[in-house]
Design a protein around this nucleic acid. Structure first.
Lengths: 229, 229
DNA sequence: GTCTATAGGCGGATAGAC
DNA sequence: GTCTATCCGCCTATAGAC
């Protein structure tokens, strides 16, 4: 008898939680993560601020939920971009993923800022954010793995001093890939977000006009750096 | 008679202005730019909040002053890094500038965030910030110019579609350099801040350990991309 | 230029009724 | 789970005295 009641209650809880997150995301755009306010969310949702504490004990927990969602969202975008050209070679899949991440960022600028922008002062991300944070980069790993199995990957040279660090990184991230490839991939992954961040945060204003074309060029360079042709 | 009085008054004004900016910078570190508060600055300085309005009419003007200072600061760091190896070849000078920018960022994380991180919601940077913003990149331009005069620069290939945009960018930034070089330099400049931002904003936590070495490797790749050897 | 005082508004968080 | 009421702190910005 109470099982359906519990089911309904659980469903309602999920829906309200989703509504809170959606409104909070809307407010990210207007005021930024630093000023995310439970009270303002509650006001906009027509509920008492105290009621919100039943769903998120405090502001940081709400922030954590938004961060995890954002990482999952960009990870899904990367996976979808890869799958849309699943039959193509590694280089094509790789550039498609870069374009997909950029498209996601342009479409979700405030969620991008939440995860790749300035950290929120006073907020420390808990460990639960770590796995979703790696999801996007794992798409890169998969493509490089394919390329390495085939003939499509030129293993880049590595300065001698980086060898131990590269070995350590490879052991953590992709033990089946050459350390040189893993280390270079991590650097290129970071550089990709340099390009995206500059575009999104206004550094390209009055500098780069045709950004689609410019980005395609830059991504081609990154592909060559990582050993894909 | 009033000239010395005016001089003293002007000096005092400069000193108080500097104290306000210094305290505001300190608060950037604690609360972030979005929450920068004239009132808190005044409180910490032991003056009435209303007195502060004589120096900065509102929060945005204070923010603008801090932004311009930060751009000048990183620009000076880039110039100093270049001058410290003034007798070396372009490739060495170039990597020195990259290291110098990174060192500046690690030493001034909150000023870095102010100019290269998430834009402050509700704040629109006035045109007066544009010239200082370009100062750092101009150091790159100078080095590439030297390299191009000598034999030290391999002009990178450019996809046909980027040609018009590259020509436009070169006309704005460095008309005496090949458009291919200018377009690639802008991309590499952005990528440099991808590396620095990832390190500073925590994306390398649990991923990259020996960051000095890793950065040196990545910068070497960037040098090759831009055509320096 | 600096002060006090004030207007009008925001926020996080909790207690206790229903 | 939701509400009202409340505590206590924060903010921008201005008026008017000195």
């Amino acid at each position: 008898m109470s099982s359906t009641a519990h089911g309904a209650r659980a469903r309602a809880r999920i829906e309200v939680t989703a509504a809170i997150k959606a409104e909070a995301r809307r407010q990210l755009a207007e005021e930024g993560a630093a000023k995310l306010s439970l009270r303002a969310v509650a006001r906009e949702l027509g509920m008492a601020s105290s009621a919100l504490y039943r769903y998120f004990p405090n502001r940081d927990d709400l922030l954590t939920a938004l961060i995890i969602d954002a990482y999952d969202s960009v990870g899904e975008a990367a996976e979808a971009a890869r799958d849309a050209v699943a039959d193509a070679g590694p280089a094509v899949r790789w550039t498609a993923v870069c374009e997909g991440v950029r498209r996601w960022a342009l479409g979700h600028p405030h969620e991008y800022a939440l995860i790749y922008g300035t950290p929120v002062p006073g907020y420390a991300a808990p460990d639960t954010t770590v796995p979703p944070a790696g999801r996007g980069a794992m798409v890169f790993v998969g493509i490089l793995r394919d390329a390495h199995r085939g003939p499509g990957l030129a293993v880049p040279a590595l300065p001698a001093g980086l060898e131990p660090e590269a070995v350590r990184m490879a052991a953590d991230i992709a033990p089946d890939l050459p350390p040189e490839v893993v280390a270079t991939m991590v650097a290129v992954w970071a550089q990709l977000f340099g390009l995206i961040g500059f575009e999104l945060f206004g550094q390209f204003n009055r500098v780069v006009e045709d950004r689609d074309t410019f980005f395609r060029h830059a991504v081609g360079q990154l592909a060559r750096t990582v050993g894909l042709t």
